[in-house]
Design a protein around this nucleic acid. Structure first.
Lengths: 338, 338
DNA sequence: GTGAAAGCGCTAACAA
DNA sequence: TTGTTAGCGCTTTCAC
């Protein structure tokens, strides 16, 4: 086997057929053009022998599509996103599409460059979990009619449909559970405040505070990371008027909370109650298993894939979005105060 | 802003210059050709106004490169791989490259298709963590001279350099630590047995058994997943002659072990000692913090990036590979038996 | 300083 | 049943 630099032209020269015929045989359209079986066999054989693989860049340029989609995520270091990414990948593979994933490091600037570049690759579609609150670059996506779906984070002002957990409901239910257990002083540690998954959860938290007329309200934090959670929890530990419960808006944040508590010699749920968001696999095996809000990950992925295919057929709008109810998984991290 | 379908031809028509000049200005080579500043300004302005973005497929086809590399991983659902992926991404971004990641679901067949397809995209390089022990598809990579580096899993028979943790040493040191604590019956739960990261660790385990002349040897498991770990641990619990310690070859497997132990009402380290591999962030906060072998992740990523750039300059060989020593992070999951 | 023209590898009208 | 030709959007040689 040579493998050197085999194109349809090489094969055309060797077999004596035209590049057209070779192309037709190799891309599977030859039946339509009634190329003879004999010819097809010859060409296939030669292609196999030389290890021919069609140049995707050429195919793309010509067809403006290539059976592949892009998946833009804020950070694969966050298990929630890497899990979603993995599931989405599989779903597209089953539909015979490749998924090219890009990690934007929760950085809006990187996201913009990335989206500009990838949108010029002639991909068939895009699934994006945005890293910030700007969307001028996304307007371009719309104007070039590149089918796109948001997951988890979205912009209600844009015509791009989204699929997400109902962040507000999730947060509200967490507060309610805490209140039901007698907590009146609940602090919230948020993630990236430029992003709707964080702001909606904060809204849910505040709605809970208001609903039960609690007079303690505290929102800290600024990033969905362990480090940020750690910093914020240390700050909370220095408060004069300390909360009895912490509501951390992601499992990564919760890890930081646990870190700070461990350093300070505090325990869950004796010293603080904790509710988290994301429901990572390891939560069950922690020193104190943590109550957490679970995203309906499979549902979200499935629906996103479905929507993307739909939007490859006809133009969709925000109206086609889905918000799925999260599920509160109760474990042992809430102390009963009443 | 229109954004419709803007090419250098559009720009050429509007500004009255040729596509050549427009191209030169827009891709930054215009100084070399001494295009006047005035012209450059005009063209830049128009390009900006129309939101021009170069069609990557066309650039690729022409230049056979596009400032981007592919990263093939077995599964992003495994935190070890998603962490590596995230770090590598960042490193390349800093060098002005995009990274397209692909999740192969630990499936060799998917990996083959994926690599064939992506290698025909005119990428500038590839970093791959293979999903199996076949490498015919990788020979093609070599023959088309696509710069490639393996991470974590590799083939010593191929000329492609690799960067990896020293799996053998890691495993051996785990067994030694266990032995030092009086354990004589150590079971090993392996991952994907077609892959060197698993087989080398198993070899290390066996070397330890031999070194200390232990007469208990047990290797079970077949996948780097929680589910497989769970199954295997349940099997071990039914053994007549049970081990006192479990050596799980990944944190995902360990999670399965914990699951089975919890179901059976067993505890670490009282009932079983446990040593794991990967050193995930949450290990510190488990009911019993788990001793684990840490990959030098940053070092690995850094070296891989370095090597890939080198191999874009001149052809490298396996000789250029690096094996980094892992670090055993001791926590509380080993019971002292002596 | 700028442009015409060829060509990267592929597909698809149109022709035969 | 097969081939000719044009062209996707870009870069680059060669010419002026």
């Amino acid at each position: 086997m040579d493998f050197g630099h085999v194109t349809i032209k090489t094969l055309a020269n060797i077999t004596g057929f035209s590049t057209t015929t070779v192309s037709r045989v190799l891309n599977g359209t030859y039946k339509k053009y009634r190329v003879s079986e004999k010819t097809a066999v010859i060409i296939h054989a030669e292609a196999k022998k030389l290890g021919y693989i069609p140049n995707q860049a050429a195919v793309n340029l010509r067809l403006k599509k290539n059976q592949s989609i892009g998946l833009i995520v804020p950070s694969l270091a966050n298990p929630f996103f890497s899990t979603i990414a993995s599931i989405i990948s599989k779903a597209f593979y089953n539909r015979n599409y490749s998924v090219y994933m890009i990690d934007c490091d929760e950085n809006q600037q990187i996201e913009k460059e990335t989206i500009n570049k990838i949108s010029a690759q002639n991909l068939d579609g895009l699934i994006v979990i945005p890293s910030g609150n700007e969307y001028d670059h996304l307007e371009r996506i719309i104007s070039i009619k590149l089918p796109t779906i948001f997951i988890d984070r979205y912009f209600e002002d844009l015509s791009i449909p989204f699929v997400s957990t109902d962040h507000f409901q999730g947060a509200l239910s967490a507060v309610e559970l805490l209140v039901k257990n007698g907590h009146k002083k609940i602090a919230c540690i948020q993630g990236n405040p430029t992003v709707i998954s964080s702001t909606e959860r904060v809204k849910g938290y505040k709605a809970g505070i208001e609903k039960y007329a609690l007079d303690f309200e505290y929102v800290g934090g600024h990033e969905f990371t362990q480090q940020a959670g750690h910093e914020e929890m240390k700050r909370i530990l220095e408060l004069e008027d300390r909360p009895t419960a912490i509501f951390a808006l992601s499992d990564t944040i919760s890890l930081g909370v646990l870190e700070a508590l461990k350093e300070g010699g505090y325990h869950i749920p004796e010293d603080f109650s904790l509710v988290s968001f994301d429901n990572s696999l390891y939560l069950d095996y922690l020193e104190c298993p943590i109550t957490s809000i679970a995203h309906p990950v499979e549902k979200i992925a499935e629906r996103a894939v479905e929507l993307l295919f739909e939007s490859m057929e006809n133009v969709l709008s925000v109206q086609d979005s889905s918000l799925f109810a999260p599920k509160l998984i109760e474990r042992d991290s809430i102390r009963k105060l009443c």
